[in-house]
């Protein structure tokens, strides 16, 4: 049996490379910063390969649906839950809190 995993795409057919780019949004830079700060010598919570593994395990649908830093925060958050950095309950409560604050400030979901 030859398993080819979804992220392992070298050599597959794909469309033209569109030369798109964007200035990284503040939230993307902050995800980047969280991951880097949590993978230092004195905070060895996330290794590059754990993060990669977590991204690969998001599965084909989610992998393509999310953008780059959405995949990063998904993987990093799962790993921090696994390692007990915070609990599911804490995360859920905090996310509800953040969303209600943002809504109160006039932001809307995309």
């Amino acid at each position: 049996m030859t398993i080819r995993r979804h992220h392992d795409m070298g050599g597959l057919d794909a469309g033209t490379v569109e030369p798109v780019e964007h200035d990284y949004a503040i939230w993307e830079k902050r995800v980047d910063a969280i991951v880097k700060l949590m993978s230092t010598e004195d905070r060895p919570y996330l290794s590059t390969d754990e993060l990669r593994r977590g991204i690969e395990e998001l599965g084909p649908g989610v992998y393509d649906e999310l953008n780059y830093y959405e995949r990063w925060i998904s993987s990093a958050t799962n790993l921090m839950l696994e390692k007990g950095v915070f609990s599911v309950k804490e995360l859920g409560r905090k996310m509800a809190d953040v969303e209600s604050r943002w809504q109160a400030a006039g932001a809307k979901p995309q």
Binding site: W27, L91, K94, P109
Partner: peptide
Amino acid sequence: QPDIEDSGYTERMVMAQAVEELLIEKGII
């Protein structure tokens, strides 16, 4: 976060903000 207020937020943006706040509140970063 002006980017979020301007163009709307996603569940992962909420997650990112929540994670950052939790890590700061816990004194980890």
